[in-house]
Amino acid sequence: MAELMYWEAVRRAHDEEMAHDPLVICMGEDIGVAGGTYKATKGLYEKYGPDRVIDTPISENGFTGLGIGASFLGVRPIIEIMSVNFAWLAMDQIFNTAAKVRYMSGGQLEAPIVVRSPGGTAHQLGAQHSARMEKVFMGVAGLRVVTPSTPKQAYGLLKSAVRCADPVFINEHELMYNLKGEVPDGEYFHPLEGSEVVREGRDVTLFGYNISVHWALQAAGVLSREHGIEAEVVDLFALNPLDRAGIAASVARTHRAVIVEEAEPAVGVGSEVMAILNEECFFELDAAPLRVSAVNVPIPYNRSLEKAALPTARDVVEAVLAQFSR
């Protein structure tokens, strides 16, 4: 297994899928000649040419719609939206067309696009470049939503998303492109549904996704070393559909749950997981589940305020200790 950075894993998946199928194209702002803001398409323009690696105008709804139209005829576009904040502009085409066209055509048409975009809050980018939008995407029928926490997932989820007949939104993270991790040397296709236990533990389950998996793992280390509490960490790499069975099975083992999310609490991953816990395993719970979320504000520019707006591993530790009345 080779160690790759997250961006290298995304780039490798692009390259392999474009080599495998001449109808796979990629498009987005600065992805071609410039190689991509996060280098996810570096070198592909030179290799596959301007008809398949398309530098688009800054017209998110327009080029997303164009990709969807091309997908009606079997083209498999990988659409990069430079920042998830700009995806608001493409919501019309993603929600009104891609997510609904199979249904409203009675199964005649499908829109097998991949839209990938860095979400999350980076460093002092201000309110309009720091949104976390996974909660907006995950509530829509007809759209798959996945969010890789490791280079392996970034590679394998993109590979499967390109081949899947459904539209898939991949929520990446601006701060994770330089994260290193092992990626299989051979081709690997990650499932687009399910969840993964990334740390076993008997006392409490910490649910995370994308960057918050890493916060949960840090917290689990502290809980084990300093408090003798063994936390199970579950990676919810698929946000739509959520893995109801996997969520319930973990809590049936640990009887406690804390959901760690980078976004504001309302109508998000945490509230949805809590609803699933209520519906699937209420009587397994020994303590009320808790959410560790961002503060409900637009992300501020000021460094201290920005830090204060986001959850940390320390907040996770405190939430778990509260469940144990410590």
Binding site: F63, L66, G74, D92, L109
Partner: peptide, 27 residues
């Protein structure tokens, strides 16, 4: 929709089909 006759649909968001048509043409 009647895809076998290549009627790719009626859409209810005013202006929505402009980029879809360009995409079909791209394909």
């Amino acid at each position: 929709f009647d895809v076998k006759h290549r009627f790719m649909g009626g859409y209810a968001l005013v202006g929505g089909p402009f980029p879809l048509a360009a995409g079909i043409a791209k394909a």
